[in-house]
Nucleic acid binder design. Structure first.
Length: 197
DNA sequence: TCATTAATTCGCC
DNA sequence: GGCGAATTAATGA
């Protein structure tokens, strides 16, 4: 993320969005750098059959859409608010001005982009696996890697079953069935419907 | 508190 | 794995 002070210096604007609001859509032209100040958003696609696949879910402090600013393409996904959000947006030209004048910020951005890429590598490998247990475990491993507590069961998966399903490409029922199997194998625990890993 | 909606779970194919 | 129905949780009037 980029310091807010710096963003505003470059004419960034803060906007409020409601749950379910669309920030940008597949096919649209990327013109802004977005940074989440408050709330959660998802990047998703809808497959031919109408099913949703979630590319990623972001929360406070994370930026999104920036990787598309460097190349002349259209958005390959939608960005939708999962809850009410406050989002800071910076126009593309200002974004580049900022990058030019603050190379240290540019370096930080590289780091963030590398992190995204890493996630994609993990998930790509993940999706090629047919075993639902493997899919869920690699998603959880990834999520837990950001978590401070590394002890077993210390991490609570911050998603609903539905969201886990959409992130892994599994169906809800499979996520539920697989979760139960994993509880028996002592891989996870479930408390108040939340998955502890 | 009741009604509505979303999420979760279960049974059956 | 997918579908429909039952159950439970969350949200709002």
């Amino acid at each position: 993320m980029i310091e807010e002070r710096l963003l505003y210096k470059f004419r960034a604007e803060s906007k409020l969005y409601m749950k379910g609001d669309v920030i940008f859509e597949e096919g649209g032209t990327p013109n802004f750098y977005y940074q989440l100040k408050e709330g959660k958003i998802k990047l998703n696609n809808f497959k031919e059959d109408g099913k949703e696949f979630i590319q990623n879910i972001f929360s406070e402090g994370q930026s999104f859409g920036e990787s598309l600013l460097f190349i002349e393409v259209q958005y390959p996904m939608n960005a939708i608010c999962l809850e009410d959000c406050q989002i800071i947006s910076l126009p593309k030209t200002s974004f580049f001005d900022l990058m030019n004048e603050h190379p240290e910020v540019s370096f930080g951005l590289n780091k963030a982009l590398s992190q995204r890429l890493y996630y994609k590598y993990i998930m790509l490998q993940n999706l090629s696996s047919t075993d639902p247990t493997t899919r869920m475990i690699s998603l959880m491993n990834y999520l837990k890697s950001f978590h401070v507590k590394k002890e077993k069961y210390a991490f609570v998966v911050p998603f609903t079953r539905q969201q886990v399903a959409n992130l892994t490409g599994l169906c809800v029922e499979t996520v539920i069935r697989t979760s139960k199997k994993m509880v028996k194998k002592d891989i996870i625990r479930i408390k108040d419907r939340k998955i502890h890993y």
